[in-house]
Design a protein around this nucleic acid. Structure first.
Lengths: 249, 249
DNA sequence: ATCTGCCTTTGATGCAGATCAAGCGAAGAA
DNA sequence: TTCTTCGCTTGATCTGCATCAAAGGCAGAT
């Protein structure tokens, strides 16, 4: 494993921040940004590190700057379900709540922009732009959660895998400022086990369905993680979603 | 079926509204309430009626005043998944969005307090209290959705049924201002098929597991809908949740 | 009183995905 | 080099829930 980056190099100016236009601070005016800069600090985590355990005290909220984090719930007997997949610009934590409701884990190397909770809450009360943006982001997350509920409750294993791949492909395309269509190439940011936790399956079923999609020419695999999608529309047909709509994530 | 109530009798004063302290208007000052009164109107629906179809234009947002509504998603081939269960004080619709994302259905006779969307959005932009409360409610719903995801992804049929019963029992108890413990009695507001749509099961499996819980003395059934829970803690043990936490709904 | 339609229960059977188990390949570590 | 570990694949078997099918109970209509 690589050591965490030097934190000092990460303390950007907000003006240069890669998630400036999508994160919880997206709507802030320059004076509001100045206030945020005073209470913010960066933290970085290595792939695989647990950021917070469910039930832990949590004195900050944060935005994901780079990398991917997950929210998971665990039952007493060890059954696990992922309930959130956090990408750059996504928000972690809940204003007004002092303890974490879920385990938060870095699945890749990760950098977060953290705000001490108390001053952040005060700022939310005093200026509208942070709260406005947070409402918008929360509504989007709720939509995503509902799409995910349909997946968990009613889709077959193959449809689940195809859906997850199409979500990741779409996000990767938008990150590269490309349209999600035709031929796409990307790296899976999740292990088979993490995919299983996302989809409510076992890792064996994930592996088998990946092999099946490969055999059917829907995807090509180079190594375990590198995915080629020859025709994105063909992948979409396997998701079970109606042709137009698709995922809102 | 009974005819809808006379709408005129439903036009309350907000001060007497039964959901005044929990709905999206909970934080409003009297001047804000006055503004809301100007743009509000009541609508009532019969049990079974569809309120909106997914994709329909939606020119209002609303609060459930009495009765129960559901949000469902349907796949092309007819598979259905409930993604929201709306109880009195819950909010319907999304500011800033003109079309419905889900089918909204009244599962019991229902009264909603509707606000025309445009003026409601203007009010959200101008006064903070509505937006503040809506953010809080949306965060709560997101937590509930995540709990539901764990249920859909990882629980057995028996655990799913026990979980649903405990949610309904808890809500019913809080409505009656009782503690959810010891012996409880309530009516199921959902058909077996609606329960199945909620839980990601078939109605036959729901029926079988209800019979099994009855046989094991976890619940007693009087008719199809009337439920007696002799000991709520025993029911909770069947949900698979850890003893303390439980559902946030 | 009987019919009709809807909701529900129960039984028989089938199958998708879980479980149990073995082994492969690549990346460090010794 | 060889060993160990970790993530992954594949095979054999099992099982929980879906599916297919039939019938019972109740409420409202005629």
């Amino acid at each position: 494993m690589t050591p965490p980056h030097d934190l000092a190099t990460l303390v950007h100016d907000c003006a240069e921040c890669p998630i400036r236009h999508r994160a919880v601070c997206a709507r802030c005016e320059s004076d509001e940004l100045q206030r945020l800069e005073q209470i913010k600090y960066y933290r970085s985590y290595q792939a695989g590190q647990t950021i917070i355990w469910s039930g832990d005290r949590m004195d900050f909220v944060a935005s994901v700057v780079t990398g991917i984090a997950t929210l998971t719930q665990t039952m007493e007997d060890g059954r696990r379900q992922m309930v959130g997949l956090l990408l750059p610009s996504d928000f972690v934590g809940r204003p007004g709540r002092a303890t974490a409701a879920y385990d938060v884990t870095a699945t890749t190397d990760l950098v977060m922009c953290c705000f001490r909770r108390k001053p952040f809450e005060e700022m939310m009360a005093q200026t509208p732009h942070v709260a406005q943006r947070l409402l918008e982001m929360t509504l989007d997350e709720l939509d995503a959660a509902r799409e995910w509920m349909l997946l968990l409750g009613r889709k077959t294993a193959r449809e689940k895998i195809a859906s997850l791949l199409s979500i990741i492909a779409r996000r990767d395309a938008s990150l590269k400022l490309r349209a999600a269509q035709g031929s796409l190439v990307f790296d899976l940011p999740l292990t088979r086990e993490e995919m299983a936790d996302y989809l409510g399956l076992t890792l064996e079923t994930v592996s088998r369905q990946m092999s099946a999609l490969k055999k059917d020419g829907i995807i090509e695999l180079e190594g375990k993680r590198h995915i080629v999608v020859p025709d994105f529309d063909v992948l979409l047909e396997e998701t079970g979603d109606d042709s137009d709509g698709g995922f809102l994530v």
